[in-house]
């Protein structure tokens, strides 16, 4: 097996007495869609934050593309090829959809901070942005201020921003959180289409979606990974059934 794109070793994080990440080790191979499931408060988002660099772990290592980036800033990790979406929608409301996505593309373009030349009409960036916007099916809304989008549209805008970064790996924290059934199905379609092209770590509560999308699943309970395996193996894992899945996935 080739070198994993994301590799976490012995990660620990606690908030005061509460241990939220308890000796977590996990990896995501190139092109793999690795799902992370677990009950509310299990520590999934906290883990995503530590991988992305927005929270510092108390112990452990994080390697991206084989490089130890444990202490690196979120920006440095992004430049190393790591993109993410946020559980709580995080966009730039005063820019339009095209501007949001073009700004994501801008970060990795040469002369990312050029002082002259109008950014809004920068065709090189806009072409890249339009491709990402089309990929998530948001083209009709490209000119709308991002703050005016519906919740579901904002969720796919997040994915478009991640794609425009041309990342190697993407962290997706509940991309379907709070969206309706129809939109949720569209997002599953979208992720299926992306499968194989990026290493993806997907946090999601929708078990149907997870079991249809994932190559491997890790189950997080009270901060520790109690099982990692293929969907079929996880479905029948007694520890997982006892702790989390219950009969729902049977």
């Amino acid at each position: 097996m080739s070198e994993p794109l994301i590799r976490i070793e012995g990660l620990r994080k606690s908030f005061g007495a509460l241990v939220v990440t308890d000796d977590v080790s996990l990896d995501v191979a190139p092109g793999e869609l690795h799902a992370l499931i677990g009950p509310n408060g299990a520590g999934k988002t906290t883990l995503i934050h530590q991988i992305a660099g927005t929270l510092q772990p108390n112990a452990g290592r994080i390697l991206i593309g084989g490089v130890d980036l444990s202490g690196a800033s979120p920006a440095a990790r992004a430049r190393a090829g790591l993109a993410r979406t946020f559980q709580i929608t995080s966009i730039i409301p005063t820019l339009d959809v095209l501007g949001n996505v073009a700004l994501a593309a801008q970060a990795r373009s040469p002369r990312a901070l050029r002082l002259f030349g109008r950014a809004a009409t920068d065709e090189a960036l806009n072409a890249q942005a339009r491709a990402a916007i089309a990929a998530v099916g948001l083209s009709a809304r490209a000119g709308a201020p991002a703050g005016m989008l519906s919740h579901g549209e904002k969720r796919v805008l997040e994915i478009a921003m991640a794609l425009a970064m041309e990342p190697k790996a993407i962290l997706l924290d509940e991309p379907m959180a709070g969206v309706g059934r129809e939109e949720s199905a569209r997002i599953v379609e979208l992720l299926l289409g992306l499968k194989g092209r990026y290493a993806m770590l997907l946090v999601e509560h929708d078990m149907e979606a997870v079991f249809s999308l994932a190559d491997r699943i890790s189950v997080l309970v009270y901060g520790s990974v109690i099982a990692t395996g293929t969907p079929d193996a996880i479905r029948v894992d007694p520890a997982v059934r006892a702790a989390y899945l219950g009969d729902e996935a049977a």
């Binding site: 992305a52 927005t54 800033s73 979120p74 920006a75 440095a76 992004a78 430049r79 993109a83 993410r84 946020f86 995080s90 966009i91 730039i92 409301p93 005063t94 820019l95 700004l103 994501a104 801008q106 970060a107 990795r108 990312a112 901070l113 921003m161 970064m165």
Partner: peptide, 13 residues
């Protein structure tokens, strides 16, 4: 508007 997001793109805010 959103320094965390801009940082997550790879910009040094």
């Amino acid at each position: 508007d959103n320094p965390v997001r801009v940082g997550s793109f790879g910009f040094d805010v």
